[in-house]
């Protein structure tokens, strides 16, 4: 199972929303699609779901062109694009039944899908009474109910409260374990780091990076940690003399920002040295996410090697 964009472009007048995008995502995994507003994320997903037509190029799903062989291409794909609205006079059960009927799928998964997104109790309530968060949960159930192998999700946690966001992330992790291919866009870097195995970054319609989260993390690992101490640190000189330490700034008597040279191994050795010196450390963490660093660097204009 795979999704592939081949020289995919979408032009509005003189503006390229997407420019010669070449990207292939394949296998049972979750791929995060990152980029700032207007980068071309939703445009890509809309082309893959036949909501937009490309100016040139092709969007392929499992060997079928979405534009030329729509039914075959979308047969095994669950979608959540933007926050869809539903027919207000139907109930969640009817909405999901409609979808199953359109797709010729068994209705047996409906109850399970509603339980998964915590809408079972609302199964017979008309959708017009739903809040935005509930609508988003139903949209997730719509994507799940036919048990597709591929899922295209456009900011799936938009409009949800923190608990709802966490629940949707757990669902996505479960789907990943079931071997599904999930291609999801998001603005939330921690979400991508938490849920995805790979990340594709796009800006101004052009793909900047496509790699595993691990590789991106090692390339863009933060060289700055924030350490918190149980007792105030009165003298920072001994710490400054430790190997790998390049600079220290005291945020407050209990908190230091330590910049060091090296990667994860050096970061670990630095922690070890501090403990051996007798410091009582209550917290020791990298400042900022590696993914965030990569994102800011790439969107800022620098290309990764």
């Amino acid at each position: 199972m795979y999704l592939e964009a081949i020289n995919l472009s979408k032009k509005y007048g003189n503006f390229y929303a997407l420019k010669n995008l070449n990207l292939r995502v394949e296998g049972g995994k979750c791929v995060g699609y990152l980029g700032p507003n207007g980068a071309g994320k939703t445009t890509t997903l809309k082309i893959f779901t036949n909501l937009l037509r490309p100016t040139s190029g092709d969007a392929i799903i499992n060997g079928y062109s979405v534009q030329k062989e729509l039914k075959k291409a979308l047969k095994d794909v669950g979608t959540l694009i933007e926050t869809p609205n539903f027919y207000p006079y139907l109930t969640p059960i009817e909405i999901l039944s409609m979808l199953c009927d359109i797709r010729g799928a068994d209705r047996k998964n409906i109850i399970e899908a509603l339980k998964k997104v915590k809408l079972y109790e609302w199964r017979n309530t008309k959708v017009k009474k739903f809040s935005k968060g509930m609508t988003q949960r139903l949209a997730m159930a719509v994507a799940l109910v036919t048990n597709p192998s591929i899922m295209i999700l456009d900011e799936p946690t938009t409009g949800m409260d923190p608990q709802g966001m966490a629940e949707i992330r757990e669902i996505i992790k479960e789907l990943k374990k079931e071997g599904k291919l999930i291609f999801m866009s998001s603005h939330l870097l921690p979400e991508i780091t938490d849920v995805c195995d790979e990340v594709a970054m796009i800006n101004k319609g052009t793909l900047l990076l496509y790699d595993s989260i691990d590789n991106v993390s090692s390339k863009f690992l933060s060289n700055s940690i924030v350490a918190e101490f149980l007792e105030p640190v009165r003298d920072i000189k001994p710490i400054q003399e430790l190997p790998y330490v390049r600079a220290i700034s005291q945020i407050n008597p209990y908190k230091l920002r330590i910049e060091f040279s090296g990667n994860a191994k050096e970061q670990y050795e630095l922690l070890n040295s501090l403990i051996k010196m007798g410091y009582k450390i209550t917290s020791y963490r990298s400042e900022g996410l590696a993914l965030e660093k990569a994102y800011l660097k790439l969107i800022g204009g620098d290309k990764i090697e």
Binding site: T49, L51, E82, N85, F86, R103, V142
Partner: peptide, 14 residues
């Protein structure tokens, strides 16, 4: 207008 198209159109249906 009501965005129900986001539910209906991305399906394997002509």
């Amino acid at each position: 207008q009501t965005k129900t198209g986001y539910f209906l159109l991305p399906n394997p249906i002509r």
